[in-house]
């Protein structure tokens, strides 16, 4: 039942079709942008850019490498943003992705600060902080209706595959085996990026080499502090405050029995 996407960086050709398809389906306007001196454009993810292709150009063993990675929400299975969201606007959909109901969001911005991948963006930052959050929704209005997410649907080289997550994991293994000794160019260091620190992700990447920093991906993303906050501090705080109230109520009755007002000066 859990859906996933497998994005093969060795197949991606940087056409940015997914970037456009995402905007088209989700009705997101174009950015006013400028040439940044590289192919990356626009500069960053934003409330109107939920998916953005990053370009990585580097030299290795005398050969120029040029890889591309569409950056968007990773849809962590154990998502820190869902844990810290006080409104339930971010929630895990039964189909495995991290869905978002904007009408519930109050703009607190905890998701932007607790996301290990720095994905959600607030719509506006006002003095009173009224901007709502925004991020890739895994095409939550397509997938439950049996359709393929817009990015996967449009991807010309088939670098973005959509399907059952379990099947995609099998496909990834086969693909990795092929890449490690495959022709025309082997990628002996090819890896699958599906970090366990966040319980695995519904958005998985096949990377040409195990150098995560090169692809702007964190080595060990985790929701550690989100867990400490939600699973330890919050319940303990509730217990502490509840115990205080109960203790005071008990103290009230004990005191009433022991101290008679007539004797009080």
């Amino acid at each position: 039942m859990a859906k996933g996407m497998l994005i093969d960086v060795t197949k991606c050709m940087g056409c940015r079709g997914c970037q456009v398809a995402c905007k088209e389906w989700n009705d997101l306007p174009a950015e006013t942008t400028a040439c940044l001196g590289c192919y990356d454009n626009p500069e960053d993810l934003s409330p109107i850019t939920w998916n953005r292709v990053e370009f990585y150009e580097y030299e290795q063993d005398g050969q120029v490498n040029w890889f591309f990675r569409p950056v968007r929400c990773m849809h962590c299975l154990d998502a820190p943003c869902v844990k810290v969201c006080p409104t339930g606007a971010l929630y895990k959909h039964e189909m495995g992705f991290t869905a978002y109901d904007e009408s519930l969001c109050n703009g607190c911005g905890y998701c932007t600060q607790f996301c290990p991948f720095d994905i959600p963006r607030l719509k506006e930052t006002t003095f009173l902080g009224k901007g709502k959050s925004s991020k890739c929704t895994f095409c939550q209005d397509r997938v439950p209706a049996g359709q393929v997410p817009a990015c996967a649907k449009t991807c010309p080289p088939g670098a973005i595959q959509f399907g059952e997550r379990e099947e995609l994991l099998e496909k990834a293994e086969a693909r990795l085996a092929h890449l490690r000794n495959g022709a025309p160019r082997p990628f002996p260091e090819a890896v699958l990026y599906n970090p366990s620190g966040v319980g695995g992700t519904a958005m998985m990447y096949i990377l040409p080499e195990n150098n995560l920093g090169r692809f702007n991906l964190p080595e060990a993303p985790s929701g550690a502090l989100a867990n400490v906050w939600q699973k330890i501090v919050q319940p303990l705080g509730g217990v502490a405050l509840g115990a205080t109230v109960l203790g005071l109520i008990a103290a009230f009755f004990v005191t009433r029995r022991n101290i008679r007002m007539e004797e009080v000066e």
């Binding site: 409104t87 009408s103 969001c105 109050n106 902080g129 919050q234 705080g237």
Partner: peptide, 23 residues
Amino acid sequence: LYVPPFQSLAQGQAGHFIRLVHR
């Protein structure tokens, strides 16, 4: 914002108002 059972009060416009009062 802290206690899960109060979630419905933290949502949407009500949540905006709560945060406004807090600040």
